[in-house]
Simulated assay, not measured.
Amino acid sequence: MDKIRRALLGQIAKLTAGAALVPLSSIASAGINDQPPRREGDPEKRYAMLIDLRACIGCQACTVSCHIENEAPLGSFRTIVSQYEVEHEDTGDSATFMLPRLCNHCENPPCVPVCPVQATFQRQDGIVVVDNEVCVGCAYCVQACPYDARFINEYTQTADKCTFCAHRLDVGLLPACVESCVGGARIIGDLRDPESQISRMMKEHYSELMVLKPEMGTAPHVFYLGMDERFVSRPDAKPAIWDVRDQQGEEIGYEFSGH
């Protein structure tokens, strides 16, 4: 039996077994289409990230450090810097635009209420996480995310995504991507602390800040400074500089794996 068939049968078996262990009462109480109560985390904090695109050079240090820190499978990313080749409408001159992407840790995350077992949940500090001990790999949350920020981890066969490196924040460390950013483009902090760097920057640049897909009503908590409004929604663009390939050599492109 080849590896692909074994992996497929293993995944089907896990999904079937997982579904069999989920009583109907649990699905009913999960509050599908409603946001369930937040749990864990510090209720006194609300974490968010501000990405200063004026300082991003597209070096992918954040992508690499995140990949190492969180042991993501080859070809899958919790964060990545999309690189777009754009042309000036009048002159035709081309340039490269960098857009770091990750889970937006929304105030109203659409990925949470669709989970039939509440494996995906929002902490009281706003961070959206996945309990891999509970997740059955149904991928409902992957489909619900409007930011292409989720994937099914081929190692664990459960949902995976950026967590703002909550395990590091909880012990006073910065997320791997923030710590490794050579330009200091990523700023993370507590919005409820008026003296935090992110609070001060958001106050200073309030009129310039943008979020991705605001029309979705998710209230993203990843804010961009220095972004052209044409990139608020997924632009009609082509990859620039480099591409990404999976283990079979197939091109993944410049978005998250599988999208």
Rank of each mutant, 00 (worst) to 15 (best):
C66A: 03
E44Y: 08
I187V: 11
P113Y: 07
F231P: 01
H88V: 01
S199D: 11
I27K: 11
G217W: 08
K161Y: 01
Q247A: 10
F97L: 14
E179N: 03
D90K: 15
F231Y: 03
C138K: 11
G58P: 04
N104L: 12
I12W: 08
I12A: 05
E71Q: 15
P73V: 00
L9Y: 02
I188W: 13
D160A: 05
R168D: 13
T91M: 12
M98W: 04
H221V: 07
E44H: 09
M98V: 06
L174V: 04
R78N: 10
F97P: 06
N104Q: 14
L209M: 09
H205P: 15
Q122H: 11
A144P: 03
L99C: 01
I152L: 08
V211Y: 00
F151E: 14
P23S: 06
R150K: 07
T218F: 09
C165N: 04
N70C: 04
C56G: 09
A159N: 14
M227L: 10
Q83I: 05
V22K: 08
K45Y: 04
T218W: 04
C111L: 00
N104T: 01
E208F: 08
A185P: 12
A166V: 05
E69I: 09
P43A: 05
D125S: 00
V142P: 10
R245E: 08
N132D: 09
I80G: 06
G183Q: 02
E255V: 10
V22R: 12
L9I: 09
H67E: 07
G253D: 10
Y206S: 10
S199Q: 13
A48F: 07
A237N: 13
V142L: 15
D193Y: 15
G10P: 00
R168P: 04
P235F: 00
E107F: 10
D243N: 15
L9H: 11
S26M: 02
A72M: 13
R6T: 03
L53S: 09
E44K: 04
K203M: 07
Q35L: 06
A95Y: 14
A185H: 14
D90H: 02
V86K: 08
C106D: 09
Q122S: 11
V64K: 06
V182L: 09
E204Y: 04
A166D: 05
G183T: 10
Q124G: 02
V244H: 13
C141F: 12
C66N: 06
C66Q: 08
K3E: 12
D125E: 13
G258Q: 15
N108G: 01
L50E: 03
P175H: 05
L225C: 03
A55W: 03
K14S: 01
V117L: 04
I127C: 10
L21G: 14
Q60H: 13
C103P: 07
K213W: 04
A219R: 14
R39W: 01
P214K: 15
L191S: 13
K238P: 00
R186T: 00
D228Y: 14
A144G: 12
S65V: 01
E71C: 11
C106K: 12
L74R: 05
R46E: 09
K203A: 00
H67D: 01
P43T: 09
A159V: 10
L53I: 09
P23A: 01
F77N: 08
K238V: 02
G31T: 05
S257I: 07
V86G: 10
I27E: 07
P116Y: 08
K213Y: 02
R46M: 00
V22E: 08
T156I: 02
A28N: 01
R245L: 05
K213R: 15
I152H: 08
P194K: 12
